[in-house]
Design a protein around this nucleic acid. Structure first.
Lengths: 227, 227
DNA sequence: ACCTGAACACCGTTCAAGT
DNA sequence: ACCTGAACACCGTTCAAGT
């Protein structure tokens, strides 16, 4: 054992593959969903994986590249949408499916806000979505605009609901929010105060996302009917 | 002017204020709009203000508190919306006004995504928005749901358009995005490829936000008419 | 190819202190 | 009250290696 060398105090190394691209990404997603993307550091992720921090740089050039890989992985969890049938059902299936992924993986929303899309990740979903709108009878420019409008609605709902869900999990934050709202002057903000119960029930409540989605689909139906 | 007194109580011209709450916040917003919230550090902000880094802790207990102050300040830039008139005009004025603030202050969107609202910041806007919807004839639960649905749309549009604007300012990123989209197989994604010009024209293009807003307002009008 | 500790240039924040 | 430099415990990443 003992050697006359100065013995750099090197630790034993795993020369075999100790981790993989996939296992890093899915572990990172799990940790980010639990504690937020910013709480996951290279060092903490490496420790969770049981490797040295620098090992991760064999698989990713930078932390941003890891963020992108996690975001793409989460987006890929969306099941392939149906390619035929009533256009309304197809649009609804695509958007509720994406909404479910956003809610089940709260860090995805923060990753989407932080890093711009490269353009390839959601190609299958985009294809199915645009196809449904073209099949519905919208001309190309209108189909593109409708597609974007629905994506706006989806992203905003995911962003808002993620925060509400995070708050409801934190008793202190929830208490503080409620106290702030209750402290609002009924003289200055009568409608807000009067509707406080409805707002509390509505925000991040089952049915809220679908309510707005139905609204937009109703407008599209009307437009197709020549309204 | 040296005195031999320990001079515990002496506070001659008691340390003049080098900065103020307001000047810190507006400088921070300007820097964040220019380079993104994460690029602004306590040290860089203090240097811009010409004070020591620790000076800022006289005004803010933490960086998160500074983030919140900047976010509240940016939200307050929205002019007070009209309190009477046609409900459609009022809703449109409120949402387009907020949309303008989100576009003019791109860091606001990232601050909203990062930090939950405390509940008091947008009380005036919320009051005006809910009031318009109640005046339109929606009952309280429906007014609350419509309010949230429109906010979803607003937030999503701000989030998406901020990214597109940031990309279009970065030639390298724009080139890369375009290359990725152009590399999409026309066999696998025929509709995406066919609509690529429309998508490029539509995203973050003048009129896109209003297109979706009109869609939602049309649906509300229809609903009020008993459709 | 895969893995690693040490080291570098940062960061937010605490501390003790100076006016 | 207001302001400050030094110091602490981090962080992502570069480097120079080790297998």
């Amino acid at each position: 054992m003992a050697t006359s060398e100065p013995a750099r105090t090197t630790r034993p190394r795993a020369s075999r593959k100790a981790v993989s691209h996939d296992v890093i990404v899915s572990t990172a997603l799990r940790m980010m969903d639990a504690a937020g993307p910013e709480a996951v550091t290279i060092r903490s992720l490496a420790e969770e994986l049981g490797v040295g921090a620098m090992t991760l740089y064999t698989y990713f050039r930078s932390k941003d590249e890891l963020y992108d890989a996690v975001r793409d992985h989460a987006l890929g969890l969306q099941p392939v949408p149906p390619a035929e049938g009533d256009w309304e059902d197809r649009v609804r299936a695509i958007l509720t499916g994406l909404h479910r992924v956003l809610i089940e993986h709260p860090s995805l929303m923060q990753l989407l806000a932080r890093r711009p899309l490269a353009g390839h990740e959601p190609a299958e979903i985009t294809e199915a979505h645009l196809r449904a709108l073209r099949d519905a009878g919208f001309d190309p420019p209108t189909a593109a605009r409708v597609h974007i409008a629905l994506i706006y609605y989806l992203l905003g709902s995911g962003m808002w609901e993620r925060q509400r869900i995070a708050e409801s999990a934190d008793p202190e934050e929830r208490r503080q929010f409620r106290a702030t709202v209750e402290a609002l002057s009924a003289r200055d903000y009568p409608t807000v105060v009067a509707l406080a119960p409805e707002l509390a029930h509505t925000v991040a409540h089952p049915g809220q996302f679908e309510f707005g989605l139905d609204l937009m689909i109703a407008a599209l139906r009307q437009r197709l009917a020549g309204g």
